[in-house]
Amino acid sequence: MSPLMMVRRIGFYVVIAVLMAFFAVPMLWLASAPFDSKPGLGLRWPDWTLDNVKTTFEHPYALASLWNSLVICVVATAITATFAALAAYALSRVRIPGRDLMLYVLLLLSSVVTGTAAMVPIFVMMFQLGLINSQFGTALVIAGGMLPAAIFILKDFVDSVPRSYEESARVFGASPFQVLTHVVLPVARPGIATILVWAFVNAWGNFLLPFLLIREVGKQPGAVLLRTLQDEGGSANLTVIPVFSLLYSIPVVVLYVLVNKRYGFRFHGGIKS
């Protein structure tokens, strides 16, 4: 190996190492800071203790907010997956003029509908509906925002399921409901699993909508509560935040591992001409 190549290679690995460290540091912090007697923003070998965990569990809102997150997420994910599956199936199988255009427009608008641009109208609408401070109402809005993309991804997935499966079941005398439960849903299961995880993770990390629509601290999900974890002086409460962050990250990781083990991530989305 020539010296020039050696230098090149060393340079390459240095750059990679710096990049990796950039991503690794927060992870290591998440693993060490919760168990450090004096957690700081820096990364260091912890002085092991479980006091932070105790403090966090005694925090009046911390665990409750994670439960709130879970409720909102499960509702939003269930609504998204159910409606997206039904809509995707219908859109895949029934010919409607302008169907593809409609899907693209929906997808385009979805980022606007729940994005910052619509904050005020959404707030006003939910206020008039009396759904402020309602976890269900918030879940509904989150689901509404996720549906177009979910339908888009699932429709593409259902498109790849041959019609002859359903026709075959029909010839054997299956009712439309039997066709759905015996054939279409099982065959589309990896796609639905993808949507479930995607929707859950999206809803779990959603800050803006619950922040906007849930004003009562006791009903706020973790993503919103995290922002208010500070002491009287207004500086970050570093005894609670590390443990809380760790707890907050667990469901997403568990979900990913479970689904990946069961189905593997066969991602079928994308655009077909």
Binding site: S164, Y165, E167, V171, G173, V187
Partner: peptide, 16 residues
């Protein structure tokens, strides 16, 4: 179709 007492084998077999 299911009430016609007709069985069909599809070109791609359509095995579930």
């Amino acid at each position: 179709p299911g009430k016609r007492k007709v069985a069909m084998v599809f070109q791609d077999y359509a095995l579930f």
